[in-house]
């Protein structure tokens, strides 16, 4: 197994882990964190798979950088919405979803 493939498979595993958390948890903060783990998994796959042939491919790096910017903005936005929801309703979960689950 090459190093690149190893990273890629790790990335897929991270993605799946994040996905599980994203679906499983009701608390919004956990879901936002899970989303970030999924994102990291994606980026790992992108960088890992680009290692083929021993040569460094610059394109995925540019992509991952852009992707991180997008993910950070989305996270910030989600956090502020969550905080606002907490102010308005006193809950950190979406209505109809139980925190214990």
């Amino acid at each position: 197994m090459t190093g690149g493939l190893f990273y890629a498979i790790t990335g897929v595993l991270l993605f799946c882990l994040g996905l599980y958390g994203f679906i499983q948890h009701a608390h919004l903060l956990r879901r936002i964190l899970a989303f970030n783990i999924m994102g990291s998994g994606c980026f790992l796959v992108l960088v890992g798979l680009a290692q083929r042939g021993g040569q460094v491919d610059p394109v995925p790096h540019a992509l991952v950088l852009t992707g991180i910017v997008v993910a950070v903005s989305a996270t910030a936005f989600a956090l502020i919405l969550m905080r606002q929801l907490y102010v308005e309703s006193g809950h950190c979960t979406l209505p109809g979803e139980d925190e214990e689950s």
């Binding site: 897929v12 993605f15 989305a74």
Partner: peptide
């Protein structure tokens, strides 16, 4: 928030697909 979570999930699934296509 519900919309945001759905949209983010959707775009991450898409992004993983993009990564695999590029690979």
């Amino acid at each position: 928030l519900r919309y945001l979570l759905a949209a983010l999930l959707g775009s991450l699934l898409y992004l993983l697909g993009v990564a695999l296509v590029y690979g």
